[in-house]
Computed example of a mutant assay.
Amino acid sequence: MPTGVAVVCDTDDCLAIYLAVETGNDGDERSANDVSQLARKAAEGDGWVISFGFTQPVMTCPGCAD
């Protein structure tokens, strides 16, 4: 079952969005936590910087991280 994931840059005034689709047919539905982990790993692999704020991860696109 394909799973779509999206990560949005948390920097003020930045409109960057990272979109990815994980394909495969494992027959199981993924939990929200599984999809969140998948999104973080995919974004980090493409240069996004993941840090942690008060209650959730903070995502920064490669352009804002420079």
Rank of each mutant, 00 (worst) to 15 (best):
M1D: 06
M1S: 14
T3R: 00
T3M: 01
G4F: 08
G4S: 13
G4R: 15
G4E: 12
V5I: 15
A6M: 13
A6E: 15
V7M: 15
V7Y: 10
C9P: 13
C9V: 08
C9H: 14
C9M: 14
D10Q: 11
D10R: 10
T11I: 07
T11R: 15
T11P: 01
D12P: 06
D12H: 05
D12S: 04
D12L: 07
D13V: 06
C14F: 10
C14H: 11
A16K: 02
A16C: 03
A16V: 01
A16L: 00
I17Y: 02
I17L: 09
Y18C: 08
L19S: 08
L19C: 02
V21K: 15
E22M: 12
E22R: 07
E22V: 10
T23F: 14
G24D: 14
G24S: 12
N25D: 14
N25A: 05
N25M: 10
D26T: 03
D26Y: 02
D26M: 00
D26R: 03
G27T: 07
D28P: 02
D28H: 12
D28F: 12
D28M: 12
D28G: 05
D28E: 13
E29R: 10
R30N: 09
A32Y: 12
N33L: 13
N33W: 08
D34G: 01
D34M: 11
V35E: 13
V35W: 10
V35T: 09
V35M: 07
S36D: 14
S36F: 08
Q37L: 14
Q37F: 05
L38P: 04
A39H: 09
A39P: 02
A39Q: 08
R40N: 08
K41Q: 14
K41Y: 11
A42K: 02
A42S: 05
A42C: 01
A43K: 06
E44V: 00
E44L: 03
G45C: 00
D46F: 03
G47Y: 04
G47A: 02
G47C: 10
G47K: 00
G47L: 09
G47I: 11
W48N: 08
W48E: 03
I50D: 02
I50K: 15
G53V: 04
T55P: 01
T55M: 03
T55E: 03
Q56M: 07
Q56R: 15
Q56A: 15
P57V: 04
P57T: 05
P57K: 04
V58E: 10
V58P: 00
M59E: 12
C61W: 13
C61D: 11
C61F: 13
P62E: 05
P62W: 04
C64R: 07
A65M: 11
A65L: 08
A65I: 05
D66V: 11
